[in-house]
Design a protein around this nucleic acid. Structure first.
Length: 405
DNA sequence: AGTCCACAGGAAGGGCAGGCGA
DNA sequence: TCGCCTGCCCTTCCTGTGGACT
């Protein structure tokens, strides 16, 4: 049998270690985050003296190093604790995945339980029972437990945050502190004021990276990730500049660099060039659009399809135009149609996702409406055509009253 | 200056599914 | 297991509005 992997394995002349470019990778050195590392370390240092550190709330947009800094400091804290004989327990929880009160308490508690048969099950126990088991575990483990709740805005309900942020009131032997991380700057506005004050004893803000800072980060990672001379001049600057344009997102910069390298490698090129970055940018954007559209509810897909058909025929549409096409499509597909009010909201949602453009305009005597356009219509058309659930529009040419005037 | 169009978009509430505590 | 609660999606009803037209 022909060795189908041999060629693929030996062909890579660019990438040495792809893991380094993944967002989950924690490097041994975090450029341009010295200030945040020091601030967080100076809050957590009391753990080494056996005291409970203040609870911390960390804000910052995606890809500003919040998670990296927290886990970095946590790793060093545990190491120092070991050296000094001060027991430190560092627990990281991503609340996007673990989002209910029960699951969060269960996860933290299970961290302390070694035997599989003693672990708390996924479901079944009363929540207060899990909570008291957690208290016992932290007390029994002694020392200081630091709990990181990443993407804390995804947690359902305030109660678990309230309990955890005041957990020291219930603890006897052990101590605990909570680090909440969020990229939603307005998150605390909607919190119970009691939670807000106890969780946010200390606040850290992570500013976006500048293009120059991103360049340093990428250069550091590129040294580890790529073979020698595999990256041409200008590639790293270009990736940094593109990511800085968005909002200084290091994750995006790393993605762009990684995808560029993958493309270059797949094309059999010897090095990553600027053209690969541009191709990568297109690919990432298309993947994003594809993913967004794929997960859209059926009604939103029909609205999008209506916009697509209408703009193809007439260039741009008003809300009323789109709605009449939408009604026709629902008829053809045998779906019950939503009201215009709801469709107007769906148009706004699609606008927010960046799949279509809808801006409010006034046509004077002829009313106030939204002008709707679909920017990357070819790509969207391609994706929607493959969707089996949508009505057949092969020979449908919309006729709009307003366009006949 | 006033009218009037075609909606925008807020408010309130119904119906439903899923989660949660007893 | 059951009833309650919550969040989500949606409808109905409503007031507000920019600017071409009269």
């Amino acid at each position: 049998m022909k060795d189908i992997f041999h060629e693929l394995l030996s062909s890579g002349n660019i990438i040495k270690n792809k893991e380094v470019l993944r967002p989950s990778y924690i490097p041994s050195f975090l450029p341009h985050r010295e200030k945040q590392i020091n601030e967080l370390a100076s809050i957590l240092v009391s753990a080494l003296k056996g005291e409970a550190p203040s609870n911390v709330f960390i804000y910052g947009k995606t890809g500003t190093g919040k998670t990296a800094v927290s886990t970095f400091v946590g790793k060093h804290l545990m190491k120092k604790g070991k050296e000094m004989g001060a027991p430190i327990h560092f627990i990281y929880i991503n609340c996007e995945i673990v989002d209910t009160q029960y699951r969060i308490l269960q996860n933290i508690t299970n961290h302390f339980i070694k035997g599989w048969d003693e672990r708390i099950p996924f479901t079944g126990w009363p929540t207060d029972e899990v909570y008291s088991r957690l208290i016992n575990s932290i007390d029994k483990a002694k020392g200081v437990t630091v709990i990181v709740l990443d993407e804390v805005d995804k947690v359902k309900g305030d109660e678990v945050l309230y309990n955890l942020s005041r957990i020291n009131n219930d603890l006897k032997e052990g101590k605990a502190s909570v680090i909440g991380i969020s990229n939603d700057l307005k998150f605390t506005e909607f919190l119970d004021p009691r939670v807000k004050s106890s969780l946010g004893e200390e606040n850290l803000v992570f500013p976006p990276y500048t293009a120059d800072e991103l360049k340093d980060i990428l250069s550091e990672r590129a040294k580890l990730a790529f073979k020698e001379n595999a990256i041409e001049d200008g590639v790293i600057s270009l990736c940094s500049a593109k990511a800085a344009q968005e909002h200084g997102d290091a994750r995006r910069a790393l993605d762009l660099l990684r995808v560029s390298a993958e493309i270059a490698e797949r094309l059999g090129d010897k090095s990553v060039r600027e053209k690969h970055v541009r191709m990568a940018e297109n690919k990432i954007e298309l993947d994003r659009v594809r993913e967004v559209i794929r997960t859209l509810p059926l009604q939103s897909k029909i609205v999008l399809l209506s916009a697509l058909i209408g703009t193809k025929e007439y260039g741009s549409l008003t809300t009323g135009d789109l709605y009449s096409i939408y009604e026709e499509l629902c008829n053809r597909g045998g779906y019950t149609n939503l009201t215009q009010r709801r469709v107007a909201d769906i148009i706004s949602e699609l606008d927010m996702m960046g799949i279509l453009n809808a801006r409010v305009i006034s046509k004077g005597r002829y009313g106030r409406t939204r002008e709707i356009e679909v920017p990357v219509s070819n790509k969207i058309k391609e994706i929607l055509e493959k969707d089996e659930s949508l009505p057949d529009v092969e020979n449908y040419k919309p006729k709009l009253q307003s366009k006949l005037l």
